[in-house]
Design a protein around this nucleic acid. Structure first.
Length: 528
RNA sequence: CGGGGAGUGGCGCAGCCUGGUAGCGCAUCUGUUUUGGGAACAGAGGGUCGCAGGUUCGAAUCCUGUCUCCCCGACCA
């Protein structure tokens, strides 16, 4: 049983009176709760193929919103979208040694191009149709995009070259979890080539800042941006930077990364340009990515005991109108009233975009449908019955303030229809910032900066408080064997380094691992 | 990939030890009565018990293999 880092206490004093929409509470079994949210919110399901999932419309709709908002940010940075092949020639992949080493263990390989009958009613790969050179299914595209870049970059005038692709990738994971670690996942990968190191580093940091802004402003997920230590770097990278988010069980989730690759990938793929003086120079390359893992982060950041709560910026539908139809002639007038509401809302905008409103007229009881939308996490539900119509009001339910603590019942408000139309935009804005503030408060309450020795660390992450959050500690940043020894110390406590946060005060103490003078501060946590 | 657990209608489970061709709750459908709210009652539909072999007169149940999922570990941009 995992202990929560922080339990919202808003409804705790009357918990018994509230009948939650899920059967499992976060505090009782966080892993099981996570799975129940995914199925109860109808986001995804198992596919029968190991580590692969079917993303259903509501889950994919959230991903599409993420794509849209991040894509806007990517394009605003002058990056162009393109698409590169799923299959990568093995030889192409072999060129960067550290990169190969990092991915070889989890690669899917295509070896045949035809099937034949096995004589027993089944099909087998045709031995006659073996590929001369096997193709690997991309686990990431540095190599194949580098190959293209080597052709596209000739002169300093071609630089910088900034590309991005939205694609699926495959990594043969040993242990999978829906959205968080699947064998196949969806992501975007940005790949840029630059004339020099300084410009490449600027791009590395630009992408990192873009992810921070996306996570915090669009997904309402507070993150810590920083540099990964040597042992957590992307295979082949000179530097790896990440944004790290704290989940409601206190574990860390890496939610986006940006890598300064130096010239090693340019060397491997021969990405060179002629400089102003006529000499040949290697490009400095950068890559950065964010994936469907972010959807998992969204669930574990904003979900509650009634299901998912989708921040308005990411909600496929921000407002769901539920007419309380009775299968009687009066329904026509009620529908008319709801269509007026729908039309009024459709003319509004929130968070810089037109409102996304659904008038849900599917057959079925309004009350039953209400709980479906609560579990899915639609930000605002507007139930409209005949009495609402007579009074010119609507019954409004905010997903971020679902319960009336006094009564233990859903906290309906009853604004006039026109008032609802006029104020809903600001309610959505409030909800967006409110979800972020709630998550940030929870995270900040579960970070400690007080630990200055290993005993303290062991105690902080002790068994009686299994997931207490993160510790920011000072360390001497050893490398090679020294770093390996520190990793062993962490492993014994089931901990990992997360990142070295930006903009923190300089180190002024001793390294909790080695006792040597510390050179920087680094986050330590359990992680997904 | 190692250790443990599990796969039975859409979801959650019982049955398995002690083989005799499947049951419960929720959901769904129909009808009636209700109706400001997660309705009640009655009836109905839906499962070759993950898959493949084997033992047996007979397998959800016993045996073998295999696939998938969950937990712990190893691994993991």
């Amino acid at each position: 049983m995992e202990q929560l880092a922080f339990c919202p206490s808003r409804e705790s004093h009357c918990m018994s009176a509230i009948r939650h929409a899920l059967s499992i509470k976060r505090e009782d079994d966080f892993a099981k709760w996570y799975q129940e949210v995914i199925s109860a919110a109808d986001m995804a399901e198992e596919s029968g193929v190991r580590g692969c999932m079917v993303i259903k419309p509501w889950g994919f709709g959230i991903w599409e919103r993420m794509q849209r908002l991040l894509d806007d940010r990517i394009k605003a940075a002058g990056v162009q979208n393109a698409y590169f092949p799923l299959f990568i020639p093995l030889a192409n992949f072999e060129r960067e040694a550290a990169h190969v080493e990092g991915f070889a263990k989890e690669m899917a390989v295509v070896t045949h191009h035809r099937l034949i009958a096995d004589g027993d009613g089944g099909l087998i790969p045709d031995p006659e149709a073996k590929l001369e050179e096997p193709l690997v299914v991309r686990p990431t595209s540095e190599t194949i995009i580098g190959d293209a870049m080597s052709r596209w970059v000739q002169s300093w005038r071609d630089l910088p070259l900034k590309l991005n692709q939205w694609a699926n990738v495959v990594r043969w994971e040993m242990r999978t979890r829906m959205f968080l670690r699947t064998s196949e996942f969806l992501w975007q990968e940005g790949h840029t080539a630059h004339a020099d190191e300084a410009e490449a580093r600027v791009e590395t940091m630009r992408a990192l800042e873009m992810y921070r802004a996306f996570a915090e402003e669009d997904a309402a997920i507070p993150v810590i941006a920083g540099e990964k230590p040597e042992n957590e770097r992307f295979p082949g990278a000179r530097e790896t930077w990440s944004i790290e988010a704290m989940m409601q069980d206190g574990k860390a989730l890496q939610a986006g990364t940006s890598h300064y690759l130096g010239t090693s990938f340019a060397e491997a793929a021969n990405i060179r340009y002629q400089n102003r003086e006529g000499g040949q120079e290697l490009c400095h390359t950068v890559s950065w990515g964010m994936s469907t893992r972010m959807v998992g982060g969204l669930i574990m950041t904003h979900g509650d005991d009634d299901g998912l709560r989708v921040p308005p910026a990411l909600a496929p539908f921000q407002i769901v109108i539920l007419p309380m139809l009775r299968g009687k002639p009066e329904d026509a007038a009620l529908l008319d009233y709801c269509e007026g509401l729908h039309a009024g809302l459709a003319g509004q905008s929130a968070l810089g975009e037109p409102l996304r409103v659904l008038l849900d007229t599917r057959p079925g009881k309004a009350a039953g449908k209400r709980w479906d939308w609560v579990r899915k996490g639609a930000p605002i539900i507007l139930e409209v019955g005949s009495r609402d119509m007579e009074n010119g009001v609507v019954s409004m339910l905010r997903r971020d303030a679902l319960w009336n603590a006094e009564t233990g019942k859903p906290a309906f408000q009853n604004p006039a229809r026109e008032t609802a139309i006029d104020t809903i935009s600001s309610i959505l804005s409030d909800m967006q910032s409110g979800l972020f503030a709630e998550a940030r408060e929870r995270r900040d309450a579960n970070i400690t900066r007080e630990i200055d020795n290993m005993e303290g660390l062991a105690e902080f992450f002790g068994e009686d408080r299994r997931y207490p959050g993160w510790a920011e500690v000072q360390w001497s940043k050893p490398t090679g064997e020294g770093l390996k020894a520190v990793e062993e110390q962490l492993k014994a406590l089931k901990l990992t380094f997360r990142n070295v946060p930006m903009n923190t005060p300089p180190a002024d103490g001793t390294c909790i691992f080695t006792g040597a003078p510390a050179v920087e501060r680094i986050y330590v946590a359990r992680a997904y």
